[in-house]
Design a protein around this nucleic acid. Sequence first.
DNA 1: CCAAATATTTGAAACGATTCACTACCGAAG
DNA 2: CTTCGGTAGTGAATCGTTTCAAATATTTGG
Lengths: 332, 332
Amino acid sequence: MSASLRDVARQAKVSVGTVSNVLNRPEVVAPATLARVKATIAELGFVPNGFARHLRAGFSRTLGLVVPDVANPFFTEVARGVEDAANKRDYAVFLCNSDESALKEDRYVNVLIQQQVRGVLITPSDVKSDRLDLMRERGISVTLLDREIKGKNQCSVSVDDVHGGQIAIEYLTSLGHQEIAWVCGPNSIPQVADRASGVVKAAKVAQASITTIEVSLMNSTGGEEAAKRFLELAKLPTAIFCANDLLALGVMRTLLAHKIRIPDQISLLGYDDINFAPSAAVPLSSIAQPAYQMGVTAADLLLSECEDGDDHRHQQIKFQPQLVERASTRKR
Amino acid sequence: MSASLRDVARQAKVSVGTVSNVLNRPEVVAPATLARVKATIAELGFVPNGFARHLRAGFSRTLGLVVPDVANPFFTEVARGVEDAANKRDYAVFLCNSDESALKEDRYVNVLIQQQVRGVLITPSDVKSDRLDLMRERGISVTLLDREIKGKNQCSVSVDDVHGGQIAIEYLTSLGHQEIAWVCGPNSIPQVADRASGVVKAAKVAQASITTIEVSLMNSTGGEEAAKRFLELAKLPTAIFCANDLLALGVMRTLLAHKIRIPDQISLLGYDDINFAPSAAVPLSSIAQPAYQMGVTAADLLLSECEDGDDHRHQQIKFQPQLVERASTRKR
DNA sequence: CCAAATATTTGAAACGATTCACTACCGAAG
DNA sequence: CTTCGGTAGTGAATCGTTTCAAATATTTGG
């Protein structure tokens, strides 16, 4: 099959130790030998076997990335950031979609442990679970992505979701909306809970009333369902704030199909500011999060934890969300 | 650190061979022993070290997936399919974005070889390169995704792009359009070339005239650039066919910003039928490809090649694209 | 109750790299 | 001519599994 270090050693008439040195500490090898061995390596097309290397070393140069859904452009952007940062340091990334299911998450955590990944970036479906500790016990660094656990000693990169919910409602009320619908996923998702708490807080200050519409899927299908439920309300709110852009797009699609004009009759505000938001039927106002940047930051944090070892200090980095105004919202 | 097979053996008072049997061939182990060893495994929280296992076995349970851009919803869908199919067979997937760059692709191929992946699914930037042979020489199965090499002995899953280009133009000419702009990426991308050839073929039959606008980036930024170039044309075509939906969305955004009405003044047709297409400012007509299904099929094909070994027969699977009519196209 | 047949279990070799104590060699110093 | 210091190179042990021939235990038939 493919050439091993031993084959190279034999062909170059040196010992395996020397070949290993050529690969890992070329400075201790005499120039002539170095050249000869390098030539042999090229000749045989030798590529070191990562398994064997990492078996001895005790760790690998791979990371796991566990997100709820890469089909969500927000996470796609995050993934891009992670990949670029990892790549820069010569790490490869395993991609895992948990679909917010604890079961799938468990399976993946197990796979990642088996693969002996060096570290894991995860948006856990359930922050309280012991999955994370399980990995850490095994010497796998864990950094939370878009989640945060207070008081716990670990790195995390998140966005201030409470503030996000708050500025959303502050914005809508500043436009004169007093009856607002809040379309969200299950409250067990921390982002949903946090944004909701920001929503409630800001609503109280502005004395606005909030109607919650909760659906199970945080994608455009969920949005369609939400819109149908919305239309059945006794008194229609004048603005809708959605927990993410996919929901908002589903809502938009359905409302437009029912001849409801946006923003004339109803203002619509999303969350995430995905790439597609400006191209929507009515360009979607949204709360932007620095997705790519978050991916890069999280990966850098994780890798520095992996490589610095003991003198690493855990950090909780929190980005601030930002309002992006487009055509889907307007004064009442 | 974490428990090894040897630790389990010691604690359960059996030999390492027996523990290994419990893991891999439980049917040869006596029920009482089986139970005891399993209990010990659970107690110590033992997870086998994938490296050591695969080092011995000579291959791993990992796949590589190399696509030009996961941020493109088409490839995201494909990736989802691949992941689900791989997961079902207990394989993990490395995600790699080549960005159509031969350099990045080379780097990733090297990483994947080092990781000793069992197989690779790739949309190669350059079909003629010897990267693919390099991997095969090392015993890594390779399946082409959304590309095809005629006469070569390998599996591939693709879409009939020539036909796709053809039905697009047939449709537009059937609506009465005779002056059509074709917005595409570099001709070095096989899909672009194939679709272009379908375009030309159908145009000849219908005696329509085609104006080609080539941009370097196949995303919405590229689309914006294309639209600007389009607007500078001496005589404006009445329809635009874009090589993918992202391009089309960029074009749409820009044309609408210039107060050009779609489809009244210009018909716009995309390719891929991504999830957002129906939510676009003007719901986008498009040529649909079964992305998720392609991912699943490709992964299944690859894994059957990996596992069936010699009695595997290479297959070239070709899906047929389909026209999806929405509001962005209309009769002249 | 014994031999043969069958069912379990054992333990050492192997996978391919890294590591490190050790040897070989060379020139310089005593 | 020996001794020392330093540089280059060696090769056996090691990592945690799987595999498999051999050893041992158990069952069966006579």
